[in-house]
């Protein structure tokens, strides 16, 4: 598990990016209902590491983050792209221990 930050630091409906020991990146989101999600930070459509900076919201009730580059929506729970069903991104494990957010 890699430490991301104190849970305190997260803001509802927003994401942060964290660097993993292997040099890859993960985007961690806190939604309005208090749940945590972690996805790859790289947007597969542009190749830019920017998903943590996308707008968080819902599509038909499904919580999503929308890539800031070309605006595809990714389901927070599964990493599935709702605009391009053949594409999905990796989901990471995320938990809070002693007030600290951790991911794998």
């Amino acid at each position: 598990m890699t430490v991301v930050c104190d849970f305190e630091v997260l803001r509802p409906e927003q994401g942060v990016a964290a660097l993993l020991p292997d040099g890859s990146q993960v985007a961690v989101f806190l939604t309005a209902d208090g749940s945590l999600h972690a996805l790859d930070n790289i947007d597969p459509f542009s190749g830019a590491a920017v998903l943590s900076r996308g707008i968080v919201g819902d599509r038909g009730g499904v919580p999503v983050v929308v890539s800031p580059v070309y605006k595809q929506a990714f389901e927070l729970a599964t990493g599935k792209c709702l605009d391009e069903p053949s594409v999905s991104i990796a989901v990471h494990q995320v938990r809070v221990r002693d007030g600290v957010v951790e991911v794998t």
Partner: peptide, 22 residues
């Protein structure tokens, strides 16, 4: 501000224009 930041597009969130490589 605290209540508005999560509404902003990345450009507005960072007060700069996002380019293709992030």
């Amino acid at each position: 501000g605290e209540t508005q930041v999560s509404l902003q597009d990345t450009n507005d969130k960072f007060l700069a224009n996002l380019q293709r490589n992030g």
